[in-house]
Nucleic acid binder design. Sequence first.
DNA 1: TCTTAAAAAATTGTATGCAATCCGTTAAAC
DNA 2: GTTTAACGGATTGCATACAATTTTTTAAGA
Lengths: 226, 226
Amino acid sequence: MEASTTKLAIEQIAERITDAVMEHRLPPGIKLVEEKLAGAFGVSRTKIRQALTLLAKEGLVTLHPNRGAFVKRPSAEEARDLFATRRLVEPEIVRNVIARACEQDIARLHQHLEEEAQARATGDRRRIIRLSGQFHMLLAALAGNAFIEKLMAELCPLTCLIIALYDAPQTPACPEDEHRQIVDAIENHDEAAAIRLMLHHLEHIESELMLDAAPKLDIHWETLYG
Amino acid sequence: MEASTTKLAIEQIAERITDAVMEHRLPPGIKLVEEKLAGAFGVSRTKIRQALTLLAKEGLVTLHPNRGAFVKRPSAEEARDLFATRRLVEPEIVRNVIARACEQDIARLHQHLEEEAQARATGDRRRIIRLSGQFHMLLAALAGNAFIEKLMAELCPLTCLIIALYDAPQTPACPEDEHRQIVDAIENHDEAAAIRLMLHHLEHIESELMLDAAPKLDIHWETLYG
DNA sequence: TCTTAAAAAATTGTATGCAATCCGTTAAAC
DNA sequence: GTTTAACGGATTGCATACAATTTTTTAAGA
């Protein structure tokens, strides 16, 4: 979120804020002060304001009138709705990818798995979390339906947020081989297996959350910039 | 789109523009000049601009840098993607409504059917088109999943747009009884029938479009305000 | 008459300034 | 000591002014 020399479009600003949320650098509930962001990005408040309305539409940010913008704190019910939606949509994504993917697409998937493995090897937890989400966004992109792709582009950052809020203290990040197994099944055109693995993967993520417990209340200022 | 005395929030501005699109008052491809809208709504361009970025995110408007905002002209491929998405999502909506709907919800559905019948009786074609879309939005709202509701709130106006672009010249609006039959099946908790009717309804709408022909090219200025 | 070039008008992109609102602090009252 | 009121600073909401860009108009040339 450091100032940049090139002029940023509002979508790019929104994207950088989204990345920060996905990497848990901006925790749920934190206030996004317009002037601070304007300074950080080297633009006027006008553009920040537009970026924030965009993010609010996306659902990543909550706008309280006259009080400002805050990173969303999804309720447990929203979290359940989100996973229900993903369980509906992602099997369809898998079906479409199997039906449409060319060699180049498969190569991109392998490349992504490689990046994930690398992030795991270096222990870069933030990158691991973001890449985990982006795996599903990549799949959605390869499925070739613009609306479903856009939906997943919203649901994935929100999922990261939910994990930040409801994750058990010392849960390890999603096991890498679940992603790899899904790619394997896709490559083998084994639709049933791919869907089963995807659903299992989603249920696995959701089951490790503590959706019945109260969400984490406080922002962990000490490690915010750690 | 006339000027108003009360101060409009940007969401309300976006909503009024959406309504105008749904009622085919703003045809696909038309340019939305910021100053004109600002005058019409009695606000400054700043707010119009935010409303337009919102609508662009929603997919109802296309933003060409330095050239302005235009009501979207969805391609045939986008139209097919849209219906594919609706065929995926709306059966789930029907399932959830059957599982969750209380008497009050059913009453709202009946009330809506009544409004549709009334619009049909008075021959108010614009209102018929908008209400047809809003029937599906109402169902989505009753399904109780915020993400699916939001998705449908985007897909329905776009569907109206697609109908404006690809509809056969003298196709009558969707037969009313298809909506009524769906509500009947929901009331009877007949999930299989409700889903079958919904899919049939969607296929019916899509099949009457001329997605293989070139979209209507020009804006019909003569009847724009007719 | 058609094409090209230049000037003018219209429109978008961005920053800034000011009013309205909210938040935290201090002071007063009970 | 606790609650309430009022002040000052900070922040948001909005309109406006100006720069950058595009579109339209006008004029000249082939």
